[in-house]
Amino acid sequence: MKVAMVASHYPLPSHREEFVARVHQVADAFRRTPGCLTADCWLSADGDAVVSTVHWESEAARDASLATVMTAGLDIGYDERESRPREILHLVAR
């Protein structure tokens, strides 16, 4: 069963372009993991949110992919460059 994750990030305006670059790096890392179908970076129409989407072929692929990316040394932590906490939505295909 396919699964997905949609994460909305809210970088401060002074960090928006840096944050977009960070999300692209993470998406590239996800795409290199087995079972990842897509990973993309989006910007909301109002420019306030950077939205990342990742789709996997299964829950097992998602779990392995997340573990790999979390240990890849990428700048993925939440910190003072963001104006509010991230919103993460986990999805399951039906």
Score class of each variant (00 low, 15 high):
M1A: 09
K2R: 10
K2L: 14
A4M: 11
M5P: 13
M5D: 12
M5C: 09
V6W: 06
V6C: 07
A7F: 05
S8E: 03
S8M: 11
H9V: 01
Y10T: 00
L12T: 04
L12I: 04
P13H: 11
P13D: 10
P13G: 07
S14D: 09
S14L: 13
S14E: 11
H15Y: 11
H15M: 13
R16P: 11
E17T: 00
E18D: 03
E18K: 10
E18T: 14
F19D: 15
F19R: 15
A21E: 02
R22W: 08
R22F: 01
H24V: 14
H24G: 10
H24F: 15
V26F: 08
V26T: 10
V26M: 12
A27P: 14
A27K: 00
D28F: 12
A29W: 01
A29G: 07
F30Q: 00
R31I: 13
T33P: 12
P34C: 03
P34L: 03
P34K: 09
P34H: 14
G35T: 04
G35L: 02
G35F: 03
L37C: 11
L37H: 00
T38A: 06
C41Q: 06
C41G: 06
W42T: 14
W42N: 06
W42K: 10
L43K: 05
L43A: 05
S44N: 09
S44L: 01
S44D: 09
A45S: 15
D46C: 13
G47K: 07
G47I: 10
G47A: 05
G47D: 05
D48A: 15
D48I: 15
D48S: 08
A49W: 00
V50T: 02
V50N: 10
V51G: 05
S52W: 06
S52R: 00
T53K: 14
H55F: 12
H55S: 15
W56T: 01
W56L: 07
S58H: 03
S58V: 09
A60V: 04
R62N: 10
A64W: 01
A64C: 07
A64E: 00
S65D: 03
L66Q: 04
A67I: 00
T68Y: 02
T68H: 02
V69E: 02
V69P: 02
M70T: 12
T71G: 05
A72F: 04
A72I: 06
A72H: 04
L74P: 14
L74K: 10
D75C: 01
D75Q: 08
I76Y: 12
G77L: 12
G77V: 09
Y78K: 15
Y78S: 13
D79H: 08
D79T: 15
D79L: 00
R81A: 04
R81H: 05
S83R: 13
R84S: 07
P85C: 01
P85V: 08
P85Y: 03
P85W: 08
R86C: 07
R86E: 03
R86I: 12
E87A: 09
E87K: 12
L89E: 14
H90W: 13
V92I: 08
A93V: 13
A93G: 08
R94A: 13
